[in-house]
Amino acid sequence: MQFSKVSGKNNSHKVTLYALSTCVWCKMTKQYLNDNSVEYEFVDVDLLDDKERNQVHEVIRSKGGELAYPTTIVDDKTVINGFRKDKLKEVLNL
C-alpha cells in the first residue's frame, strides 16, 4: 500500500492517517497536522483497490478502531476515530 509522506518538525511519533479523498473531516485532520508541523503518512482509502482496502480493514479492526474516516493511528497502537483535535493534541503532545 502506497502511503504519502508529509514531513514535519514534530516527528517523535509515528502517525498514520487513513482518510478518504472526499471527506471533509479528513481534510481538516490533514490541515491540523500540517499546521502543527507533525510528520505523518496518509492514504486515501477510497482510491485503493479491494486487496488494499482489505488490509486497511485488518489494521483498523485489529487495533480496535471503527471503520470511520479519518482514523489516525499513533505509534501503531493508539487509534483516534474522527477529527478529534483534543485527542490528537494530547497524544502528540502538541
Binding site: D49, D50, K51, R53, N54, V56, H57, L67
Partner: peptide, 10 residues
C-alpha cells in the same frame, strides 16, 4: 460498512 472492503474482489 464491511462490504466496501474487498466485496468487489470477491
Amino acid at each position: 460498512q464491511e462490504r466496501a472492503y474487498g466485496a468487489a474482489a470477491a
